[in-house]
């Protein structure tokens, strides 16, 4: 009866040696290839540092003007533009300017990276059911696995710093854009695709002339989600040495600084709201042709 009441688990000794084996082999892998992998990510690091320096080196009035201009271009709304200028002024006035710029830098770079990698993967997924079947579970893992579980191997490989932080943020933030690109392309009206095909469109012409333009609203929803998820990761990323608004939040937790945590937390919220409003209204404008419906 012992067999039924006690689960036939691996012995404590075997289990320990199994875990040790995995740990050892990964350690020797990172010892052997660590420098190469670090070198591979070096350009990314340089770009990130350059961008952060650019944001911090530029006089603050110019940064605010540029942000206002970008907001206006994206949202075409006086309310959103003025709102974001006021938010940045308050952030600066409360002494969070440098951290905000650092966060802005990492979120922007991460978003660009996710778009550059995510959209092509999404397109590949939309083109073949087999690719979709392979990639979907990977995306599921990326979104649900506890962050600390993949934070550890990343740190073991690359140490503490900006690049591992960036990778951690990207792993978490990339799935929505991949999923929504795939979905958007698959949702394109079959009749429209058939019409394009009947006129002899090649698969490239179909992709760039029909599928992507018609999937853009969905792709944009994906970009929006990616930005939101990247922002929500900045606190955790600060644990492995990413500078920014996450750092003070982390300190406030360990030291019970209520005001510090609240201020920096609200600054993250402000950034999120601005990004969200701008990217959403831009996405809406992309599908202006849908709004003027005829009976």
């Amino acid at each position: 009866m012992e067999f039924l009441s006690e689960f036939p688990a691996l012995g404590r000794k075997d289990l320990a040696s199994l875990k040790q084996g995995i740990d050892e082999s990964f350690r020797s892998f990172s010892r052997a290839y660590g420098p190469e992998i670090e070198a591979f990510f070096n350009p990314l690091l340089k770009f990130l540092i350059w961008f952060e320096k650019l944001l911090l080196g530029t006089p603050w009035p110019i940064v605010i003007i540029v942000i206002a201009a970008l907001t206006w271009l994206g949202a075409r709304s006086v309310k959103v533009t003025i709102g974001s200028v006021i938010a940045f002024l308050i952030i600066g006035f409360l002494g969070m300017w440098e951290d905000t710029m650092a966060t802005l830098a990492i979120v922007s770079v991460c978003t660009v990276l996710c778009i550059a990698i995510g959209i092509p993967i999404g397109i590949l997924m939309a083109r073949s059911d087999r690719t979709q079947a392979i990639i979907t579970p990977i995306l599921d893992v990326m979104q649900t696995i506890p962050v600390f579980v993949y934070l550890l191997p990343v740190v073991m490989l690359l140490g503490i710093g900006k690049v591992p932080g960036l990778l951690a943020v990207c792993i978490y933030a990339a799935p929505p854009i991949v999923r929504l690109t795939n979905l958007g392309i698959r949702l394109v009206d079959r009749d429209v695709m058939e019409a394009a095909e009947s006129f002899g469109a090649s698969s490239r012409e179909k992709l760039f002339g029909v599928q992507i333009p018609l999937a853009l609203p969905n792709i944009f929803a994906g970009v929006n989600q990616t930005i939101m998820m990247a922002l929500s990761m900045v606190v955790i990323a600060s644990m492995i040495g990413v500078k920014g608004l996450g750092g003070p939040v982390l300190r406030s937790i360990s030291n019970q600084y209520l005001a510090l945590g609240l201020m920096n937390g609200l600054a993250i919220v402000a950034l999120a709201i601005i990004f969200d409003r701008v990217s959403q209204s831009y996405g809406k404008r992309l599908q202006a042709y849908r709004e003027t419906g005829h009976g």
């Binding site: 009206d189 009749d191 429209v192 058939e194 019409a195 394009a196 009947s198 006129f199 002339g209 029909v210 333009p213 018609l214 599908q287 042709y289 849908r290």
Partner: peptide, 11 residues
């Protein structure tokens, strides 16, 4: 070809 559901490009 001309289609029953038109097949126009909405964008």
């Amino acid at each position: 070809m001309v289609f029953q559901k038109f097949g126009l490009l909405p964008h």
